[in-house]
Amino acid sequence: MFGEKALELIKELERSAEGIPPFNDDGIRQVLEEMRILCQANFDDIENPTTDPPNYSSVRVRHMAISRNKRCILAYLYNRLQKIRQMRWEFGSILPPEIKSLLSEPEVQWFTSYSKALATYMRSIGDNYGLNLATDVTPPKSLYIEVRCLVDYGKLDLEDGEVIFLKKNSQYLLPRAECEGLVRQGVLQHVTS
């Protein structure tokens, strides 16, 4: 049936609500191929009709199928972009390699341009005062939070000039503003009791 491949793409995306599935290059190509075949069939029916008058209803059905395929492909791409956008906010402007491998080349480019546009905007806030909107995501409850370090991270320079070493499996009481980014990257874990 027409449009099945396209539906497959959407379902695939829907199934992996968490994270992002690898870019389905083959799936996209198959849908595009189906569109091409349908379009050619329509073209033939109009140019050299086997019946008189030409069979408009089958032309119409094919036309609808092509439109639907287009819509599905764009929806697939758009919803992937939403996930990729989310990653910009979670991981910052550099994509982790394991995620990068799941994206197509144009998507990586999109990520870079999105990052750039966002950075330009954030720099322009408040008469070029600049404000990093990716931090302070939750309302601050206290200045310091207790965190457990999950990996051997190494040196961390604090704002007041102190330098501490973050070691695996040890706990620290740190200024919230300074470790928020590390918590989101998964280096530190916020300990809530």
Binding site: M35, C39, I66, L77
Partner: peptide, 17 residues
């Protein structure tokens, strides 16, 4: 977004789509 749509999909579609 338009650039991405064009490079990945739109330019490979039949001319009137």
């Amino acid at each position: 977004i338009e650039t991405l749509f064009r490079t990945v999909a739109l330019q490979h579609m039949p001319a009137n789509f």
